[in-house]
Design a protein around this nucleic acid. Sequence first.
DNA 1: ATTATTATTTAGTCATGACTAATATAATTA
DNA 2: TAATTATATTAGTCATGACTAAATAATAAT
Lengths: 222, 222
Amino acid sequence: MKKPRLSESQEDYLKEIFKLRELNETVSMQDLARKLDVRPPSVTGMIKKLCAMNLVEHEPYKGVQLTETGEKIALEVLRHHRLLELYLARHLNYSWDEIHEEAERLEHVISEKFEAAIADLMDHPTHDPHGDPIPTAELEIPDSPSLVPLPSLKAAKSIVIGRVMTQDKDILSLLFRLDLTPGQEIELIKNEAAGIRVRVNGSQYLVPQTIARLIWCENTET
Amino acid sequence: MKKPRLSESQEDYLKEIFKLRELNETVSMQDLARKLDVRPPSVTGMIKKLCAMNLVEHEPYKGVQLTETGEKIALEVLRHHRLLELYLARHLNYSWDEIHEEAERLEHVISEKFEAAIADLMDHPTHDPHGDPIPTAELEIPDSPSLVPLPSLKAAKSIVIGRVMTQDKDILSLLFRLDLTPGQEIELIKNEAAGIRVRVNGSQYLVPQTIARLIWCENTET
DNA sequence: ATTATTATTTAGTCATGACTAATATAATTA
DNA sequence: TAATTATATTAGTCATGACTAAATAATAAT
């Protein structure tokens, strides 16, 4: 079995299919075009190629899916990305909103050796700074606490943030400044129409619904 | 003035022209083809393009030269490369013969931020693990001690290695195992036809001429 | 000075991975 | 069911950066 080394583009396609698949039931060509910032015909072309390589399967109008091999590759890229994000934040003093872009470029070029080295250095972490799970070296996805969006919770004294579902730099830097970060314990005071009133480290904020929806928390009920 | 962002190929061409220029008086298309591992017509094509961008100048049959802008870019890439090599060796436990390849890929994708971060972390080093000078952030080449090849020296008690002029993995790993590394102090016992007899950390070796020529040392004689 | 050799360039091809414009197919709504 | 809208695909183009084969220019040797 040969290992033909994929292009960065191809890796990005696989990664994006994987990420979209986690959210939506089905992944359309358009979804991909949007996320990858290319035009639909480009997607058609690339998906054709990936099909021929047995990395994805495609039923027109029904969606794209990764094959087992395709998923392995996606997970490898995702592992690189998330390890890198954590590494940049922890060891190179990157701020939260800077890590994504850099990781996006580095993920395609680091070797197995590099991956292993930073994983070692960080003691084989299971989640990145956004709370996203980091696939293990064996490409399994580690267990995460079951999470729900902040707006779906009722007022409660102690809620722990698990994950922030955005890569938008402005939002990230805002959340970072307010300490609305994974691991942080907050108090949900009241769920209002305009937003969610929370207390974090003694300070009180009204978090707009749009932003609150991006904050997923450990499910305290039941 | 626009900054058109060069391709990795283009950066490699500029870097290689710079490095060749340090050794030879003149840089031919063939030299470039050899070093870059491409065929001469490819070089012609690319040089043409770089000329149009005002990054190099080319007198057919007389050689290629960097313009000021071209040199700046070459130095930037070189700075990335050498900082990375040192960083990989120091912080990620890379062995000497592994750093080059990884740096070769990373040098094109790291940001200014990344460059600054690792430079800071290492206290703005002036030389990489091979003894090659690391251009400063302002893209000046730092002073190096004046060096001469090991075979040109006479027997002497205390000689300090300054630089090893190879990227061959086997040779590097050999030199590393024998402690024939920049900064190391050695005794030159005798310059024989077959090689150079040296003592390093108490052990005695006969270093073949081919290899000895790659080892440059601080010039002890006036 | 002519010939041989080496260096360089032209001309033309190929693969990648984007693009636009136009078309076809499916899903949705009237 | 037909019309409309959304989705996907063809067909054809372009830029990049490699390649081969053939031609041309410079240098070295006889």
